[in-house]
Design a protein around this nucleic acid. Structure first.
Lengths: 257, 257
DNA sequence: TGCGTTTCTCAGGAAAATCACAGGTTGCCG
DNA sequence: CGGCAACCTGTGATTTTCCTGAGAAACGCA
């Protein structure tokens, strides 16, 4: 096997004018991701979200198609549903690996299947999320996988910084002005979403769509509630960083400005 | 390097951004490992895990293939199942040795295999693990073999340190703040895995995949249980180093922070 | 074989997180 | 300034996640 894999992604990053951090391949071309799921609604949802990340997406509805597409598309990462109509998830994995030995895979599994036997899936550096998932979660995991699969440089990529607020995606640690802040899982994901889009107004609908699972059926005011929680922990006493744009949404920005 | 011992690996190490220590060959190229087993699922699993260590992997399904591959791949270490379809383990070993006199070999044996026969073999600096194995165990043994086969410097590499907690991979000694701590085999492997990934959240699935045998079919809460055991021994009374990230996993970090 | 150790299952309970609900507050408009 | 819509947040019920004691089974060793 050739070591200098031509399709390897280095953890090169660039920051777009909007302040969004994007992953790019060494030659500056967009990252390529293959999405495999038999439910069209899922592939559509994922494709849209991942395209929004600036990535190039292809999708397949079964194992055969996945392998075929992988062969010519040569993705940098694969999102793979474990429940496919034509073949077992592990079989697909094996065939994918024959085409692309080093490609990282993000598995999608049913919630109750986790206990059964996901043996060894995360051992090779791969990862998984359970259905129903939130888009932020999928994107975050994918970014992690891609980052780690490339040249293992750039640790700073796992840390988001806005003003004196920092969020470490590896250790899940958040601090403002040096002081550690404990966040719950949902608070963490919400803050991550805000911080990945600094100085940009995010509507409640957008937030709901990205941070909460796609099957969330609750009241829209959970967003208000969690923004409230975050403020208590992030802005408590200090100059506020989380701002409300009445009728539009919320945004985060450095305190001093 | 070309003249003296072209395939020799010095125990040169480098520390990746994540804090993981990697083995490298003197010229900076990745370590090469040949995996030999007739069960495809085993070679796949091992290849995945070892590749994740940053090593270059080739695999073979029988003795003939192993010798052939070894000839041109010239690995720095070999993982060799003693039960191969075409020839006896000892025969394979002999032929391998003719190709690569100094390469260290990690034997895979069935649990009930005659142990004394293996014991004789490992006298030459080789090592073995019994099936079913845990990936952490295989990786650790391989690292040891490779480290020892190279220039015999850097034994300090076998000691992991996080804060005032130290773990010696060679002697299996663990101590915190000078005080010796006795751990069982499983506790030791779990702690080693945590300490090899300090300040990094490790999910229960990840831990299960690396620390427990690949055929473990039990409840995922063994991880919780062993974390509990470790805390009793490591953190007892002291400032805790093992932390729970609810809904995400566990991580270890120095107490003072 | 027998005994101490280790591994693991099971289950109860504690703690934490999530979210609905509802009343209070704020900003905006005429 | 009044009224309305949008937003904020206290309270508590429900659910999820985690911790740990007790004991059974497997193991290791003499």
């Amino acid at each position: 096997m050739l070591s200098a894999a031509p399709d390897k992604v280095s953890a090169m990053t660039t920051t777009s004018p909007q302040g969004r951090t994007e992953l790019l391949r060494p030659d500056g071309s967009p990252v390529r991701v293959l999405v495999v799921d038999d439910e069209l609604s899922i592939t559509e949802l994922l494709s849209m979200a991942l395209r929004y990340e600036g990535w190039q997406i292809r999708s397949a509805g079964d194992g055969t198609g996945a392998v075929q597409t992988a062969r010519e598309f040569r993705p940098d990462a694969v999102v793979l549903d474990m429940m496919l109509p034509d073949m077992d998830g592990l079989t697909v994995l094996g065939r994918l690996r024959r085409e692309l030995p080093d490609v990282p895979v993000l598995f999608l599994t049913a919630k109750d299947a986790v206990e059964d036997r996901i043996a060894g899936l995360t051992a090779g550096g791969d990862d998984y999320v359970t259905k129903p998932f939130s888009l932020e979660e999928v994107v975050a995991r994918l970014r992690g996988l891609i980052r780690r699969s490339g040249a293992a440089d750039r640790r700073s990529d796992s840390v988001l910084v806005v003003g004196d607020l920092t969020l470490d995606e590896d250790s899940h640690e958040v601090s403002r002005g040096g002081a550690n802040i404990h966040l719950t899982a949902t608070e963490f994901e919400l803050l991550r979403f805000l911080m990945r889009n600094p100085r940009r107004v995010l509507s409640k609908a957008q937030i709901l769509d990205r941070v909460w699972s796609y099957d969330f059926g609750g009241q829209a005011n959970v967003v208000e509630l969690y923004i409230s929680y975050l403020r208590r922990k992030i802005d408590a006493g200090r100059e506020p960083m989380i701002h409300t744009r009445r009728g539009a949404g919320y945004l985060i920005k450095p305190a001093t400005s």
